[in-house]
Design a protein around this nucleic acid. Structure first.
Length: 344
DNA sequence: AATCGGTCCAACCGCCTAACT
DNA sequence: TAGTTAGGCGGTTGGACCGAT
């Protein structure tokens, strides 16, 4: 019953392959093929290796037409698009990229492309969160309209009732906050801005130039806690603030906008450099969220959620049937996302 | 020159499914 | 039909390498 064991585990060599072993394996397969039996192959080829190890070495390194070296922009786009639509199915991705192996793609994604993608999505304005909100904006339509922002104005009388296809207005010079639940408001050099309700997510931006959020406890309007609350963050300019279940007293205006005094009960910080979400110790003490010393961040937020959002964002807006025949679509739409981000 | 921390990637590990007996 | 393994896959890791201090 069953089959013979695949190899004598005690007698097989492990670790890096020597050039001699490579040569033996290559010669054997080029002469005889794999014979559809990797387990028997090492003995026939005169190798003290497990069949699985031979298979891996051949597929990932020795077989003809393997492409090594830098990935092209087009390859980046394919990987990003496929990741968004199918997740970490590296072998399927490899099938779409001639010469690339699943291992290569997996390594490339984990070490470079993931970071590149994250930076691409958050780099222009220092914003990270309103991804769900953006989904409703980034349609394939060329004529964007934002009913929810139709009467948006700020205290400097900058009318932002502008379609996205036009150049976006400059971002606030210091910082602002954007909140979704039912109201939206902003801070701008200690002035309160008001915009109408309706968007569906929460985000906030912290300027690179100075950081009123981290100073804000002194002003009493955010209660985020001092800089040293954020364990492991050396440079406040890398932080982006988001989140916020708010408890606020508000007053509505006739145009549908509203203003209120903020008392945020849930605020998160996103650390650009370390690509992780954080919350202040003040928050965590109050709500019993523990700092995970092993992971280095607070337990309820991590990079994973960011990736999920990227995945969701891309899959909803960029991918579908257009992946195969229009790679530039992804890049163009990414620009649109950046424009929307910049817009805020 | 030595040390340290971060990056990269080849290779291993363990799981799942299909195939075999 | 049940037990077992091969093949395939994604996740993880060890160590080489490199730049900064």
């Amino acid at each position: 019953m069953g089959r013979a064991p695949c190899c004598d585990k005690a007698n097989v060599k492990k670790g890096p392959w020597s050039p001699e072993e490579d040569e033996k394996l290559k010669d054997y397969i080029q002469t005889h093929g794999t014979g559809g039996n990797w387990i028997a192959l090492p003995q026939k080829a005169g190798l003290r290796r497990c069949g699985k190890s031979c298979r891996l070495r051949w597929l990932n390194y020795l077989r003809p037409n393997i492409k090594h070296g830098e990935f092209s922009d087009d390859e980046d786009k394919v990987i990003c698009a496929l990741f968004a639509s199918i997740g970490s199915r590296w072998s399927i991705m490899a099938a779409q990229l001639p010469g690339r192996t699943d291992n290569d793609i997996k390594n490339y994604w984990n070490t470079k492309l993931k970071k590149k993608m994250m930076n691409s999505l958050i780099s222009m304005p220092e914003i990270r969160k309103p991804l769900h909100h953006l989904q409703s904006f980034t349609t394939s339509s060329t004529n964007y309209s934002y009913p929810s922002l139709s009467s948006f104005h700020d205290t400097n009388n900058i009318n932002i009732n502008t379609p996205l296809s036009s150049p976006p207005p400059p971002p606030p010079s210091s910082s602002y906050m954007y909140n979704n639940n039912s109201h939206t408001s902003s801070y701008h050099n200690d002035q309160t801005l008001s915009i109408p309700s309706s968007p569906t997510t929460t985000a906030a931006v912290v300027s690179h130039h100075h950081n009123p959020v981290l100073q804000s406890q002194d002003h009493g309007y955010l209660g985020l806690g001092p800089m040293e609350d954020y364990q492991g963050v050396k440079d406040s300019s890398t932080l982006v603030m988001f989140g916020g279940d708010q408890a606020a007293t508000s007053s509505s205006n006739s145009d549908g906008s509203c203003q209120y005094d903020h008392q945020y009960s849930s605020i998160g910080m996103y650390d650009h450099n370390n690509m992780r979400n954080m919350r202040s110790d003040s928050y965590n003490k109050e709500f019993g969220v523990n700092f995970d010393k092993e992971k280095g961040y607070y337990g309820d937020s991590s990079l994973d959620s960011s990736l999920e959002e990227i995945k969701q964002l891309i899959s909803t807006n960029f991918c579908s049937s257009k992946i195969d025949n229009n790679l530039n679509f992804f890049a163009d739409e990414t620009k649109e996302v950046k424009k929307v981000m910049y817009y805020y």
